[in-house]
Amino acid sequence: MLNGATCNTAGVTVPPLLPRSPHGGPGAAPFSGLDFSVNSNPCGPNRPLLQAVRDADHAHYPDPTYHATRARLACWHGVTPEEVALSVGASDLLHRAARAFLPAGTGLLSLHAPFGELGRAAALQRAEVQVVDALPALLPGHTRLVYVGHPHNPTGHSLAPEELLALAQKCEQVGAILILDEAYAPFLPELESPRHPNLLRLLSPGKVHGLVGARPAYAIAAPPIIRQLENLAPAWHVPAGTEALLAALPEAQDFLAQTLPLVRQNALELAAAMRSFGDVQHHGTPYLILNVGNAAAAAQRLLNHGVKVRDCASYGLPAWIRVSTRLEQENAALLQACRQVL
């Protein structure tokens, strides 16, 4: 019988059975309150992108190479189609990257806690995960993947382009790939990403466009990296609606100019107000973290008042909760709940 341990079936070792990584958002239990646990644009969805999903040809298979959509995204980013890979969510790309580049016994080095799906993917590969709060002068020789959130979730920390380029060069020296997770970069348009053959950029536009349920994502990297990622994708791995959203993305940016100033202002005001309850870390992202002493207990008390927040224990921060801004009146309801229970 398969259990939580690594199993040997007919002489073949299979990956261990691991629990799912915890995430914000809906769970199995019904919830009808205010959800501050998901980092998504509260002004969404972006209507033109939503319409693109609805208008997609759901009756037929898409082109399994997704060439036209990859070409549109490549032109937008100033790269070639061979440097773009599509995906349903960045989680799939992280799992594929681990399978492609992180053999058993090698190492993943993460600046601050990695996104849970990457940590889980590394564990499935039986690789070593090392979490650091500052980058070492030299990478361990067995390092094959380095993970940086740009900005990091949930702390909001980010690196300057020259720091990222220096890190990519260190990766090249030991034969590693630098994964730059840009899920929340569009909320901070001042952030920049360098170009380097050992750099793998992951983009998840569903968050900034308020369409996380459509799960759009894509990678930008040198062709050899993209070929390895594509090698692990089955045919038609991106459904028609998600592909249509990605194809429409370059022409649907007005929504960001219209909404991001409000999102940033609401987040700044929320962070200032939350400081009356404890230490707050906020670096311009739509989310912030608050030190409440016991995150699990505080999250449960807030849930009892119809408010969901993210317990950050899975990020190695058991005293902190993460809160992502919503609209002004909803933020006021959160503050009222915090006054009652914190």
Rank of each mutant, 00 (worst) to 15 (best):
M1H: 15
M1F: 15
L2P: 06
N3T: 06
N3R: 01
G4F: 00
A10G: 08
V12G: 10
T13P: 04
V14G: 03
P16L: 01
P22E: 14
H23D: 15
P26K: 13
P26T: 12
S37Q: 08
N41H: 01
L50I: 05
Q51I: 02
V53F: 12
H58D: 04
Y66I: 04
L73F: 00
A74C: 02
W76D: 10
W76A: 15
W76N: 06
H77I: 04
P81T: 02
E83D: 05
L94H: 05
R96Y: 14
A100L: 09
T106Y: 11
G107I: 05
A113P: 04
G119E: 12
R120M: 08
A122Q: 14
A123D: 02
A127P: 10
E128D: 14
Q130H: 15
L138S: 12
R144W: 09
L145Q: 13
G149P: 08
P151Y: 09
G156W: 03
H157Q: 10
S158Y: 07
L159W: 00
L165F: 03
L167A: 05
C171W: 13
E172R: 03
E172Q: 11
Q173G: 15
G175F: 00
L180S: 13
D181W: 15
A183V: 11
P186R: 00
F187S: 07
P189A: 00
P189K: 00
E192M: 15
E192D: 15
P194I: 14
R195E: 09
P197F: 09
N198E: 06
R201Q: 01
L202V: 11
K207A: 12
V208A: 13
A214C: 13
A214S: 11
I220W: 01
I225M: 09
Q228F: 04
N231G: 11
W236G: 08
A240M: 07
L246C: 01
A248V: 08
E251T: 09
Q253Y: 04
F255N: 06
Q258V: 11
Q258N: 02
T259V: 00
L262V: 09
Q265P: 06
N266G: 14
L268V: 12
E269V: 07
A271L: 09
A272L: 09
A272G: 10
M274P: 02
H282G: 04
Y287T: 07
Y287A: 08
L290W: 01
L290V: 12
N291W: 02
V292H: 00
A296N: 07
A296E: 04
A297S: 08
A299M: 12
Q300W: 07
L302E: 03
L303Q: 08
L303P: 07
L303N: 14
S314V: 10
S314Q: 09
L317M: 02
L317I: 00
P318Y: 00
I321Q: 05
V323E: 03
R326W: 13
E330H: 06
A337F: 03
L342S: 04
